[in-house]
């Protein structure tokens, strides 16, 4: 009887080995095993104003190469920014302190990941250190805008000051749209509200603190990037010696041109009065 008994045991053993081999094959050859690799890594703290669809364990990439993953995403009750902890492979321990962490989307509709673009600083961030400069996730409209050259928005959390500007028509301008000077993004639109008294649009611009020498007679204009791109605020510098301070108001403004108006002007004599101002 010992003969058939041991053949059962051998056969069963073979079966178990085959099963586990198949499992190992599935786990290592057909999946992103790196997702569970938690070995030699160190953590970096970052903050984002908007993480969009970013999830824990999403990849962290440098130059498109996976170097780690998002360890945790938390929101402190008294903060309006999300704390994102990145876990990065020990191999890549030479990330300059002024590197920018950006939330990217793989493809048009793909999953989101954190990309780190190297800065030029000599000092590197240590374990537990933080990357101060981050770019948050952008809504699809802004992404489309980017395709047409509007450029990204630097958030620079806490590093901006606000100025106000009144427009008679902002078109489809919405909060989060870039503010540019000379085509370069220097801030973003913080809010767009209708003013109940003056009956026009009150726009609050958040401008990077680095750009603190903008003359107070500068003009703000609502432009459209390309033919169908999103709209942004362009600042055309004036010549006054005084500069814009936090909370100042910009006097000179130029409202958005409506595409319909433009086309109408070309095609028909006179303009149509249909203004889709409340489109957004």
């Amino acid at each position: 009887m010992s003969q058939p008994r041991s053949s059962y045991a051998v056969g069963t053993g073979l079966f178990i080995v085959l099963g586990f081999a198949a499992l190992a094959y599935l786990a290592t050859q057909t999946s992103s095993v790196a997702n569970v690799r938690q070995g030699d890594s160190y953590t970096l703290q970052t903050q984002f104003t908007n993480i969009g669809q970013l999830k824990e364990r999403a990849p962290v990439k440098i130059a498109g190469v996976r170097v780690g993953q998002v360890q945790s995403i938390t929101l402190k009750p008294d903060h309006d920014v999300a704390d994102v902890t990145l876990s990065i492979d020990k191999h890549y321990d030479h990330i300059p302190q002024d590197s920018v962490a950006t939330i990217f989307t793989s493809g048009l509709l793909g999953d989101q990941y954190v990309g780190i673009e190297y800065g030029s600083a000599k000092q590197v961030v240590a374990d537990g250190g933080s990357l101060a400069r981050t770019k948050s996730t952008q809504p699809l409209e802004e992404m489309l805008g980017k395709f047409f050259g509007a450029g990204g928005v630097v958030d620079n959390v806490g590093g901006s000051y606000t100025v106000k500007a009144n427009f008679t028509n902002v078109g489809t301008l919405s909060a989060g749209a870039p503010v540019k000077m000379a085509g370069v993004v220097i801030g973003s639109v913080q809010s767009v509200n209708a003013d109940p008294v003056q009956l026009n649009a009150r726009v609050v611009l958040a401008i990077d603190k680095r750009y603190d020498a903008i003359p107070d007679d500068s003009a703000a204009a609502v432009f459209t990037s390309g033919l169908i791109g999103t709209q942004y605020v362009a600042i055309q510098p004036g010549g006054s010696p005084d500069t814009l301070k936090d909370g100042d108001e910009m006097i000179l403004t130029q409202s958005a041109m409506q595409l319909e108006d433009l086309i109408g002007k070309f095609l028909v004599n006179g303009s149509s009065d249909k203004k889709p101002a409340s489109e957004k």
Partner: peptide
């Protein structure tokens, strides 16, 4: 074939939760 597969298949959600 392989790169598309390995990019999306996740060990925890697909193999541990799904298969096992």
């Amino acid at each position: 074939f392989w790169s598309n597969m390995t990019a999306v298949v996740d060990v925890r959600t697909d193999i541990v939760n799904g298969v096992l």
